[in-house]
Amino acid sequence: MGTPQGFAYDEHADGSVRITHHGRKATTLRGPRAAEFLAEVADGDPQAVMARWTGNYRRGNERTARNHPRNRR
């Protein structure tokens, strides 16, 4: 899988940030979390950052992570 696609975000006057995925609301961040998100999105790949903040980043690598020695029980 490549870079996630379809994410967008809007900053609002009250300081909140709304993240959407293909036009549908994924999450709303407020206060310090919104500020932290905005700082992170300015530094990195916006699509990957939004995917991670919404929890929509686990696509295709679950099997690899499950087999990693650190995750074995």
Rank of each mutant, 00 (worst) to 15 (best):
G2P: 07
P32Y: 13
T3L: 12
F37K: 03
T27A: 02
H21Q: 10
A39L: 15
E40V: 11
L29G: 04
K25R: 13
Y9G: 02
G2A: 11
H22R: 12
R52C: 13
H68K: 14
Y9P: 00
T20V: 05
V41D: 03
P46Y: 10
R73P: 05
G55I: 04
H22L: 11
M50H: 14
H12R: 12
E11Y: 05
V17P: 02
A35V: 09
V17N: 06
D10E: 11
G60Q: 12
N67G: 11
H68V: 01
V49N: 08
G6D: 01
V49M: 07
V49L: 01
N61L: 15
N71R: 11
A35P: 09
F7L: 03
A35C: 01
M50G: 06
A13N: 06
P4R: 00
R70Q: 04
H22D: 13
H68E: 12
G55K: 09
G23R: 02
L29S: 03
T20L: 02
F37L: 10
A34K: 06
P4K: 04
Y9E: 09
Q47P: 00
G2N: 08
W53S: 03
N56S: 15
A51L: 08
N67K: 14
A34W: 03
R30T: 13
G31Q: 06
T64V: 00
A13Y: 10
E36K: 04
G60V: 00
N71Y: 10
A48V: 11
S16Q: 04
F7K: 06
T20A: 02
K25C: 11
G44K: 15
N67D: 05
F37T: 06
G23V: 07
